[in-house]
Design a binder for these strands. Sequence first.
DNA 1: CAAACGTGGAT
DNA 2: TATCCAAGTTT
Length: 351
Amino acid sequence: MRDGDESAASAALLRWYDGAARVMPWRIGPAERAAGARPDPYRVWLSEVMLQQTTVAAVRGYFRAFTERWPSVEALAAAEDGDVMAEWAGLGYYARARNLLKCARAVAAEHGGRFPETEAGLRALPGIGPYTAAAVAAIAFDRPAVVVDGNVERVVARLWAVEAPLPGAKPRLTELAGRITPAARPGDHAQAMMDLGATICTPRKPACALCPLAGFCAGRMIAETLPRKAPKPEKPTRRGFAYVAVGPAGEVLLERRPEKGLLGGTLGFPGSDWTETPAPRPPFAADWRAAPAAVRHTFTHFHLELQVMVAEPAAPPPGATPRAGFRPADLPTLMRKVWDAAQGALSSQAE
DNA sequence: CAAACGTGGAT
DNA sequence: TATCCAAGTTT
């Protein structure tokens, strides 16, 4: 991109977006947009939080479930913690769900049920960082915010052929993103940049031949190598034990994990520490036997291998959940895997 | 500020 | 099978 081409580029981008915008449940249609309508800030905020580090495909079903069950920020604010955690189960990064509730309650209690319209106001709420504050301000409130996510970083790095690696190059990329952000339709511009990054200016094999900005792109010949990133550390492997106890009437022993840390606030099976050489730690004395297959699961920064132990005590374990109150879908994916692995060793095939 | 924090799909 | 990585935030 050369100096002076910014407005032509943003105009080309918006023309492309007007003809190619992807339909998503949290967006409004072109006709409504043309009539001056804005999308519901609650739905914009909810979608943006769900989309943090998460693909559109993974979010769709969760967004539908949340908005059907809790149609407004007040409704969500009144929800039980456990219900929200269960509805979020499987989407990952559970701090988002905890902060989602905190944020909804803050908006309901301290802002009269209305989201703040400024970046600074939004930024002060739990779970809303620089990206989400800018996105909600631009998309829901038509504020001229510079929205920079991973897509925008990639598009901008290529447009200006920025070879400095992330994360160090982030301030530079933000500055460049500001240069092509137009005063008009900032929300559409932001979504256009992200749509472009998601569909044309992709990490691998970008479709430069289809790109509305190809004529402005200084990095086109080296697009696939940009943006450069610092190498990632290797993932160590940790091991542990998980204990699945099923009572005579199908009662299941579950525990709520601590708020802080991995899978914080989610429901799961009791278990040991996760270390190189974990010590077994059954929740009570019983005839524990090993499930035939171990559970393998990879987190952001380590691999986990869990030995699943199963017991079927004659009396239901104290505090166990009745069979009717247990749904594997309420568990995070790791714990669903543990449950699935336990089935092979269970005589009372609970399901 | 580097590290922690999930998951599933693509390659 | 292994690696990458997706609309980031918090500490």
